[in-house]
Amino acid sequence: MVPVSYYILLSAILFSLGALGVLIRRNALVVFMSIELMLNAANLAFVAFTRVHETFSGQIFVFFVMAVAAAEVAVGLALVVAIYRSRQNIDIDQMSSLKG
């Protein structure tokens, strides 16, 4: 018997760690991984609420989130490869050529 608030708290912790990763890391690949971590935390909350409300909507949303995450990773990694080819590094602090 696990209270559902434990799952939501774990989800909040994982989400905060993911947000922290986006803020502190400068390696674009690790930033991507942190975004995946945040999506995963949201998925965990979805599934926990699904279990509480006894309906499938949450699980189906998780399914769609996974599809969107897969698409995002494919495009994002293609961008990383393209940026690496033109600049020879993927430090996100140096990707500022569009800055005014």
Binding site: S5, I8, L9, S16, L20
Partner: peptide, 22 residues
Amino acid sequence: GGILLVEGVFLVIQRVGQNVYI
């Protein structure tokens, strides 16, 4: 990140409640 976490914990305690068991 700490503010985000505190906010999340606060919302959970305030809205979800402690008595819903799985």
